[in-house]
């Protein structure tokens, strides 16, 4: 018995070693650099209070993150609601519509948005040809473009946790509420919405966390004009070579994410959330 127990523990070893040496160590290095370069101490963190540039980037990131989260939740909630109430056959089609975009390369999706939204893009051409607008609209390479692309990426992540919690609701409750004289609206607001709230919170946390560290979509659709945290970090490290500042914001990002998760960990079961995705 003793020997076999050791055997099972040995199974954990490859993953544990790989993870420690090639994942945890590089991450810890980021945290270390943020307090050792250019000099030992919390000098880099002082910039959070004094440096306008850093503050602006954090503000932009939080603002875009919040807007994205709110829109993704609204769309995702309606979608999950309709999926929950659909027939099993229809459910499969709806789910396909949600999961397919989830797995298509982020780059491909960003490219599609650029094709559609840029000045000479298909949307502007179409609107001009139809005589609706005279000059092309600025649809991309600004915050509007970033939000369009980010919401597009996040909606499936919003749908899955909401859907998981809606599926646990006993359908007879709605019928019962209606039978007792509640209007559709009341049955939804007083019965369904509160019961699905945990899923809504989980989805909100997930989407917000993902938006904070998002790189590719904002970088392409922002066109270098609207900087979000991830792209700013990349600039610090690769272009300006200020490791201290770059790693500082990276650390702040990780701490913010872990704290948010810690606060909501009772509601957010990550395992189940990602399990639903896979």
């Amino acid at each position: 018995m003793q020997r076999s127990a050791i055997g099972w523990w040995l199974l954990l070893l490859p993953a544990f070693l790989l993870m420690t040496v090639f994942y945890i160590a590089p991450i810890l290095q980021v945290l270390t650099i943020s307090v050792t370069e250019p000099e030992l101490g919390f000098g880099n963190y002082e910039r959070l209070l004094t440096n306008m540039g850093v503050q602006r980037v954090i503000g932009t990131t939080l603002r875009i993150g919040l807007v994205t989260t709110v829109i993704a939740l609204l769309l995702g909630y309606a979608l999950a609601y309709v999926i929950t109430l659909a027939t099993p056959r229809a459910q499969r089609w709806w789910l396909l519509g949600v999961l397919l975009p989830l797995w298509i390369s982020v780059l491909v999706r960003a490219f599609a948005w650029v094709t559609l939204l840029r000045r000479q893009g298909l949307v502007n051409q179409g609107l001009q040809a139809a005589g609706i607008i005279e000059a092309p609209l600025a649809l991309v390479w600004n915050e509007f473009g970033i939000v369009i692309g980010m919401v597009h990426y996040m909606v499936p992540y919003a749908v899955l946790p909401i859907l998981a919690s809606m599926r646990e609701i006993d359908p007879r409750l709605l019928a019962a509420a209606r039978g007792l004289g509640a209007s559709r609206r009341t049955a939804f607001l007083r019965v369904f919405l509160p019961l699905s709230a945990p899923g809504l919170v989980a989805a909100g946390v997930l989407v917000f966390i993902f938006s904070l560290g998002f790189y590719i979509t904002p970088a392409i659709l922002g066109g270098g004009k609207t900087l979000m945290a991830a792209e700013w970090i990349k600039l610090q490290i690769l272009d300006i070579i200020r490791w201290g500042l770059g790693t500082m914001l990276a650390t702040v990002m990780v701490v913010a994410i872990l704290v948010t998760l810690g606060i909501f960990s009772r509601i957010v079961d990550l395992r189940r959330m990602f399990g639903a995705r896979a």
Binding site: I27, L212, G213, Y215, I257
Partner: peptide, 9 residues
Amino acid sequence: IIPSIVYAI
């Protein structure tokens, strides 16, 4: 959970 930009740098 941790953004890949953090891991990448």
